[in-house]
Design a protein around this nucleic acid. Sequence first.
DNA 1: GCCGTTTTCGGCCCGACTGTTTTCAGTCG
Length: 575
Amino acid sequence: MTNKQIIDVLYEISELLELKNENKFKIRAYQKLAQFLSGYDKELDGIYKEKGKKGLMEIPNVGEGIAKKIAELIDTGKLKYLEDLKSGMPEGIENFLKIPGMGPKTAVTIAEKFKIKTVAELEKLLKEHKLKDMKGFGEKTEEKLLKGIDLYKKGQSRKLLGEAYPVAMGIVEDLKKNKHVEKISVAGSLRRMEETIGDIDILVVAKDAKSVMDDFCSMKIVKDIIAKGETKSSINTIFDMQADLRVVAKESYGAAMQYFTGNKTHNVLTRELAVKKGYKLNEYGLYKGGKLLAGEKEEDIYAELGLQYIPPELRTGGDEIEEAKKNNIPVLVEPGDIMGDLHVHTENSDGIDSIEKIADEAKKHGYKYMAITDHSVSLSVARGLDKSRLLKQIEAIDRINKRQKDFFILKGSEVDILDDGSLDYPDDVLKELDIVIGSVHRKFKMTKEEMTQRILKAMDNKYLNIIGHISGRMINEREAYEVDYEKVFDRAARTNTAIEINAQPVRLDLRDIYVREAVRMGARLAINTDAHRTEQFQYMFYGIGTARRGWAKKEDVINTLPLKDIIKWIKMKRT
DNA sequence: GCCGTTTTCGGCCCGACTGTTTTCAGTCG
């Protein structure tokens, strides 16, 4: 049983309890744990099989009640408690909760009164105005729910970080034109650099809030206005993403940033900490009695709570607050630390730009080096290079390198890791290269054990320096194949092989929770864009965000090294 | 249902906006 399956069950229970109008703290207990587990890098299945129920109870937010349920789930694949909850419910009612604007109260009332099970039936009722006579139910509510059903039908899957960020930046640029805007920033999951984004949160400091609200609600990309108030507005955009704007006074900017950046659990934890100290924390400031202790700067809020500053990417409601108490938050890797990109494709395989153009672009990004890593011979769909084409490319790169100072192109390849773990070029070809990435591109459906052995064997090749996009996942498109990460990281640390954080928005692979595990185990990372055109160099930003979410420091990442040190590092494995 | 420099019971974060409410419930983040 995977963590994800358990997390889904926990959420399902919390939804059903909500529908039953159960104690809200009980509901929160399930949600809290579900959220905690989504950032947890250990497999519950393994913990239970090794240490039993007791082991489960060592996990934060797991007590006796839930430990018992998880144990039953792992043992039998089923949970009686959940089935009982479901059996007392109108069938299909959980779907109603997925409609924006529809909460548990409305869902239960409607389902019970009209005996309907599907969203289609609900839509029909709404269109026939059958619900209008219900208490507290007017025309506007009817309209709101119909809009909600439209959104539901589109399947509001979360957008990729790389899709949402440019939209958010567009909004920021638009709003900056308003002369009342003193400060503006993205917040929420975007600022936390989550791999997928539900909606765009933007925070503004302005004296004339109304004028900013007006501008926000009349932007070209506005599809419809969900809410418009004095300090808060929400819109739907033509990109099928919701955007929320908050306007606060200057003295509350830090408090508001703190409040709108943390995920729900992080915020609850910080506010609980405030209460324990006899303070109150809200989006306007940290207060003791009526007195404002901190508000303008985010840093001050954490300091007054007795915490080290917690970077946005770490505010996930995991153990970051405990670590901040102990001053254990590391200095995380930053964009300025990156010295070069080690995974780039050219027109010679499935990229579109020439080596020269790519090199020029890399220099513009302030890089000191880069690696050209086209595909290897087996990957014919990507026009992988055979030996003679690869040797020709090597010569070409040598010629270009002779012409330039202060920038160096490493001759590389993204070599296929074949089914048996051998590499797609023989060693006498590999040794002509400066750097080698090994990637799995085919035969994803192996068992976990087989896939792990395949990758371990590849790492034992002394010419292999980096494992590329290790899980093969494509967010919202393709599931990751299973790998035993602990074994891979251990081997990586011992063989001087780096694990890639592939910065393509659809990949972000190695993902955040495993980055942290890799760092703990002493494996090095390489943050690469896997660019197939020069515009994709900007993806580096997303890769760094993922690294930061995994608590990675500059020294954990090989492409923060100066050229001579990275060459030294590669040679270490070859000798 | 979890949790404890307020330990085994009694707490458990805080506020904005909307619709239809004549004082507030429901939803959302």
